[in-house]
Simulated scan of single mutants.
Amino acid sequence: MGNFDERRQDIKTRALLRSYGRFIDTLGGRYISAGDVGTGADDLDVIGERTAHVVGRSAAAGGSGNSGPMTALGVYQSLRAAATSTWGTPDLTNRVIGVEGVGKVGSELIALLVRAGANVIATDVDVEAVRAVAARFPSIVVCDDVLDAELDVYAPCALGATVTVASTDRMTASIVCGAANNQLRTADVGQYLHSKGVLWVPDYVANAGGLIQVAGEKDGVDAQWVRHRVERIYDTVLSILDRSRSDSVPPGEAADRIAGARLRLERNGV
Rank of each mutant, 00 (worst) to 15 (best):
L17G: 02
L17W: 05
L17D: 13
R18Y: 02
R18N: 11
Y20L: 15
F23H: 12
F23E: 12
L27M: 12
G29C: 04
R30S: 14
R30P: 00
Y31H: 08
I32T: 12
I32E: 02
A34P: 02
A34Y: 05
D36W: 03
D36S: 10
V37F: 11
V37P: 06
G38R: 10
G38Q: 09
G38T: 04
T39M: 07
A41R: 12
D42W: 13
D42A: 15
L44S: 08
D45C: 06
V46E: 06
V46L: 06
I47Q: 06
G48F: 05
G48S: 13
G48W: 05
E49F: 04
R50Q: 15
T51R: 13
A52E: 14
A52Q: 14
V54Y: 06
A59N: 04
A60W: 02
A60S: 10
A60D: 12
A61D: 10
G63A: 12
G65T: 10
S67N: 15
M70W: 07
A72G: 08
A72I: 08
L73R: 15
G74D: 14
G74Q: 09
V75F: 01
Q77F: 09
S78P: 10
L79H: 07
R80H: 04
R80F: 07
A81L: 10
A82N: 06
A83W: 05
A83G: 04
T84A: 10
T86I: 06
G88H: 07
G88K: 08
T89Q: 07
T89I: 06
T89D: 14
P90T: 11
D91Q: 08
D91F: 03
L92E: 12
L92Y: 06
L92N: 11
T93V: 12
T93E: 14
R95K: 15
V96K: 14
I97P: 10
V99G: 05
G101M: 01
V102G: 00
K104R: 11
K104S: 11
K104Y: 02
K104E: 02
V105Y: 01
G106P: 00
S107P: 01
S107A: 14
E108S: 09
L109F: 03
L112Q: 13
L112P: 08
L113C: 07
L113P: 02
V114T: 13
V114Y: 09
R115E: 15
R115S: 15
R115V: 07
G117C: 13
G117W: 08
G117K: 06
A118V: 02
A118L: 09
A118Y: 10
N119T: 13
I121V: 15
A122W: 02
D124P: 01
V125C: 01
V125G: 04
V125L: 14
D126P: 00
D126S: 08
D126G: 00
E128C: 01
A129E: 01
V130N: 03
R131W: 06
V133M: 00
A135E: 15
R136V: 02
F137N: 03
F137E: 11
F137K: 06
P138D: 14
S139F: 01
S139C: 07
S139K: 14
V142A: 12
V142W: 01
C143F: 02
L147P: 10
L147Q: 13
D148G: 07
D148W: 02
D148C: 03
E150K: 13
L151P: 11
L151G: 09
V153G: 05
V153N: 06
V153T: 05
Y154V: 02
C157N: 00
A158S: 15
A158W: 04
L159M: 14
L159V: 13
G160L: 11
